[in-house]
Amino acid sequence: MAVVRRTDTGQGAPICLEGVCPVEDAETLASLILEDRTAPVDWTACTRMHTAVYQVLLRLRPSVLGTCGDPFVVRWLARLGPG
């Protein structure tokens, strides 16, 4: 539904995850992170994260902003957040 976006093109602008992030978002997210390794990921608006999206975060370890909006991630997986 909601995809991975970048609010502006400036260096270091956060990448936002919004709403339900399906498997398709994984690749977009990965390429955005790889494009600009300084950009943090804002996951506060993400309500549900697909495994593939989580795997991207786990692998690339960007810095994350705030608390994830997906309660499952917060409860069980948040320790893997800020890398």
Binding site: A26, E27, L29, T51, A52, Q55
Partner: peptide
């Protein structure tokens, strides 16, 4: 072990 950044494929599950 994770592959290198360039070879990372977001659609291959390695968990």
């Amino acid at each position: 072990p994770w592959p290198l950044d360039e070879e990372f494929d977001a659609y291959i599950c390695n968990l």
